[in-house]
Design a protein around this nucleic acid. Structure first.
Length: 110
DNA sequence: GTGATGACGCAGT
DNA sequence: GACTGCGCCATCA
């Protein structure tokens, strides 16, 4: 272990996602300069979101779909967590995704 | 060492 | 506007 790879960077960035907001794999990949959104998805797959350290449920794909909900335990937990934060989910998609979308670049602005 | 896979994204058709 | 194919980089078999 102790790889200290980009995985930690992805986790750290995921923790920075504001409450009630969501971001995309591509945005995180671009901000972390991973080179591909797949890396973000793969990295989050290693996440221990059940510990509450990594709110992976706030990370969705470019369409705002909960593409990774099936990887949660149980499936649907992702949607439930988002609804608790005031984010409405319909057909595994984030409503008002355009307004709820949060870009890591806002960290630089602030 | 090679091939296949993956919580994606984009260009081309 | 929807579908298909390719690229991205790292891990697993």
């Amino acid at each position: 272990m102790e790889k200290a790879t980009y995985i930690e960077s992805v986790f750290d960035l995921a923790r920075m996602i504001p409450y009630g907001r969501v971001t995309t794999y591509g945005a995180m990949a671009d901000f972390l300069a991973l080179g591909s959104a797949r890396m973000v998805g793969w990295a989050l797959n290693q996440c221990d979101f059940e510990s509450g350290d990594v709110p992976a449920h706030r990370v969705v794909n470019r369409k705002g779909e909960l593409s990774g909900r099936n990887y949660f335990n149980p499936p649907g937990r992702m949607q439930q967590l988002l609804e608790v934060e005031g984010i409405e989910i319909k057909a595994d998609r984030v409503l008002d995704f355009d307004k709820l979308f949060w870009s890591p670049m806002e960290l630089l602005i602030k």
